[in-house]
Design a protein around this nucleic acid. Structure first.
Lengths: 226, 226
DNA sequence: AATTGTGAATTCCTTCACAGCC
DNA sequence: GGCTGTGAAGGAATTCACAATT
């Protein structure tokens, strides 16, 4: 691996490549090339090669990449060989929805606890099978259940406090759904999924689509804040 | 307004600026400057000025910007003076959670319908007060209820079909929560909020935080796909 | 012949720095 | 003096194009 700093955009594309490789593997494709991948999945072949070489030389000149081998490499690079345990703070509809979210591979991620400050929702959530704990037990449960990712699914007004509590409990990776800028200590990776911002961007498009703007598809991703 | 094409990043920042101005207005601040804004909200003053001047000259040299005035301008630029009506396809937990999401201003966005292919959840959703329609009535209800934004909250396997149906019904702005790349016709703005990708990026961070990576905070946003 | 890996070129975005105006 | 608006500089990300390799 090179020492160069690797951009968030590259990481996000590795996720995409991994998804593409999964699809190819399911179709029993053994070998592929950056060229073929790019055509099939509307990517840029040079970018694929450049992204990959930040982490090693996985291809063979004249041949291409072995699908399973590259898949293994990417899985390892993204840290997806071991399962990450997730705790969700906020047992409202959003928190509950996330707890029963089936979009990700259970080998990689698993929601193991919900937290809320409201006593009325404590106990077992029947649909997801996840226990709802009181927020006062946050640190204890995080340690006990070996939670490494915290999700903030509380209203805007409580979000900063929750981030502080998660940090205090030793969590270093946080996904936030509250539409606010949150302050974090050094060494904490905070990602914010900002629904309001996304809708506002769609609104801008709607107001301007008639006036000649021909831009089209966009995927939510990340840019550096700090 | 200039003819130059305006980047998605600029639009996203306008949302941020608008949020900051709201906060200032609430604190009865009448005038501000790019410098002050930048310090208060950890932005770059030159960027604020540059972003704004794509759309007009809203400031006064030597003085700064009038908070209310700039707020009005940004609201207009982002198309937020009129309410946008939202239809959510998929009445599972995620769809329901989004229907009762309170993170955005009801003056700007309102969820007016849910759709599902499963008959068992048709009828009124009590908590959000939104009616769940059968997907077969999608086009009819979209026209009748003047829906302009479609949200895809169905499993991966159904997402492309839903996008096609929304397009057929005349929807041009779509927010997708399924972790797949979807094909769209020209003139359709599709944004994807990819949970799986975000978690994978956190996973990468967790695997690499020990090895000297000191990067920290990130906000989910958008990069061009097409 | 085909395809990788990678410097060089290009494009896009951010930041600097200052002329122009209040 | 203070602050905007903006051309120029700098930096980052993408794409090109080709030498190296099988």
């Amino acid at each position: 691996m090179k020492t160069e700093k690797i951009s968030e955009l590259t990481i996000k594309r590795l996720s995409i490549y991994l998804r593409c490789l999964k699809e190819l593997a399911d179709s029993r494709v053994v070998t592929t090339s950056s060229q073929t991948l790019a055509e099939q999945f509307q990517l840029n072949s040079a970018q694929i090669r450049k992204d990959l070489t930040y982490f090693g030389q996985f291809g063979e000149r004249g041949v291409g990449y072995n699908v399973e081998e590259l898949r293994t490499h990417l899985t390892k690079i993204l840290g997806l060989e071991t399962q990450h345990r997730i705790g969700i703070v906020g047992a409202g509809r959003l928190g509950m929805a996330l707890a029963s979210y089936v979009g990700f591979d259970p080998n990689c991620f698993k929601v193991v606890a919900l937290f809320d400050k409201d006593n009325s929702c404590l106990g077992m959530d029947l649909r997801s099978g996840v226990h709802v704990h009181h927020i006062k037990d946050l640190k204890e449960i995080i340690i006990q259940k070996e939670i490494v990712i915290g999700v903030v699914a509380v209203p805007e007004s409580d979000a900063q406090e929750v981030v502080d509590q998660l940090t205090e409990a030793g969590i270093t990776a946080i996904l936030n759904f509250a539409p606010v800028r949150l302050n974090t200590e050094n060494g904490i990776k905070l990602k914010t999924m900002d629904l309001a911002k996304s809708f506002e961007s769609l609104s801008y498009y709607l107001s301007n689509e008639a006036t000649g703007d021909k831009e089209s598809t966009v995927t939510i991703s990340g840019f550096e804040e700090k």
